[in-house]
Simulated scan of single mutants.
Amino acid sequence: MNIKKQLSVGLMSALLGVTLIGGGTYAYFSDSVETNNTFAAGTLDLSVNPTQIIEVDNMKPGDSFIRDFEIQNNGTLDIGKVLLETAYTVNDAKGDNTEDIGKYIEVEFLYNADKLDEVIYETTLDKLQNMKPEAVNEHIFYPMFGEKGLPVGATDDLVVKFNFIDNEKDQNEFQGDSLNLTWTFNAQQTAGEQR
Rank of each mutant, 00 (worst) to 15 (best):
I140P: 01
D126P: 10
N74G: 15
L181A: 01
F174N: 00
N37P: 08
S47C: 11
V152G: 01
N163T: 14
E34W: 13
Q171C: 12
G17Y: 09
V9M: 09
V90E: 06
E193A: 05
E173C: 12
D114Q: 14
E106Q: 13
K127A: 11
G24Q: 08
V18P: 05
V160E: 04
N186R: 06
Q171K: 07
T123F: 06
N130M: 07
L84P: 01
I79K: 03
E173H: 09
L11G: 02
F141V: 04
V33M: 13
Q52V: 11
K161C: 10
F69Q: 12
L15D: 07
A27G: 10
A87R: 14
E85W: 05
S178H: 00
A187L: 06
D92H: 03
V90T: 05
N74C: 15
Q188P: 09
L125R: 04
N163R: 14
V107Q: 05
L158G: 06
I71D: 01
M131G: 04
T190F: 06
I165W: 02
T123E: 09
F145N: 05
I101S: 03
K127N: 14
I21D: 03
V159P: 01
Q6G: 08
G149A: 01
D57E: 08
S32M: 13
L158M: 10
V136A: 02
D170N: 12
I3T: 12
V90Q: 04
S8H: 08
K115V: 10
D96M: 11
A41N: 09
K4N: 04
G23R: 12
E147L: 09
D68E: 15
